[in-house]
Simulated assay, not measured.
Amino acid sequence: MYYDGLCPLCQAEILFLSGRNQAGLLRFIDVNSLQYSAATVGVSCQQALDSMYAQYDDGKLISGVEVFSAAYERADLPKLAWFFSRPSLRPMLTWGYRFFAKNRHTISGVLGPTALRLVKAASKQKG
């Protein structure tokens, strides 16, 4: 999964998924880091910031709401995976994610620090 490491809410989601990644089926790359190569992925940094992207080991690239469904499935969160995979909900979820992506730094400025604190606290309780 490619994510915006400068977004506290995005960081919270990645930390949450990392804690659920016991099977090791997920890898996370911050699009703002040197690990991210737009040329290799085929997606510019700006495109990656505008919409969530992920890539399977076979090279298949997915984006948007489909990423959440795949990630939640691999993180053993079947109810969330099911919810994000519903075709009837896809238009609403796509619109909601596009709104979030466009405004993520503003939204994250309000919700992100608290979400990040909660996820960190929960992960400490597990460990």
Rank of each mutant, 00 (worst) to 15 (best):
Q35N: 14
L77D: 06
G5A: 07
S63N: 13
W95T: 09
K79A: 14
G112F: 00
L116I: 03
K60F: 07
G19Q: 03
A121M: 05
I107K: 09
I14D: 02
L49N: 01
P87S: 12
K79F: 13
S33F: 09
W95L: 14
A70N: 06
D57V: 10
A39M: 11
F100D: 02
T114C: 00
R98N: 09
E13S: 10
Q46T: 08
Q35K: 15
I62Q: 09
S33T: 13
L93S: 01
A54T: 06
I107H: 06
Y53Q: 12
S18M: 10
G109Y: 06
A70M: 04
D76V: 06
Y53F: 15
F84D: 11
V110T: 11
L116A: 04
G127C: 09
K102V: 00
L89R: 15
R117H: 00
V43M: 12
I14T: 07
F99W: 07
Q11L: 07
V67H: 06
A121W: 03
F100K: 06
A121E: 01
F28V: 07
L111F: 09
A48L: 10
L9V: 09
T94N: 08
V65Q: 02
L77H: 13
S88A: 13
L93Q: 13
F83S: 05
A75G: 13
L34T: 15
G5E: 08
A70W: 02
Q35C: 12
I29M: 11
S85T: 04
G112K: 03
R20G: 07
E13V: 03
T40P: 00
A38Q: 15
V43K: 14
R104I: 02
V119W: 00
D76M: 12
E73P: 06
S44E: 04
E73D: 12
I107V: 14
V31T: 11
P113F: 01
R27H: 05
P78G: 11
T114L: 02
Y3D: 04
E73S: 15
F68I: 07
Q47A: 15
A54I: 06
G19Y: 00
R104G: 03
A54W: 08
G24P: 02
Q55I: 02
Y36A: 10
R20S: 07
L17N: 05
A23H: 12
A54Y: 05
L93F: 10
K120Q: 03
A39H: 14
A12R: 01
A121K: 01
S37H: 15
L118V: 09
Q35G: 07
Y72M: 13
D4Q: 11
L49I: 03
C45T: 13
D58W: 01
A38H: 10
A12D: 03
G24M: 04
A75T: 10
S37I: 11
W95E: 04
N103E: 02
G59T: 07
Y2H: 13
P91W: 09
P91Y: 12
D57W: 03
K102R: 14
S108Q: 05
G64P: 08
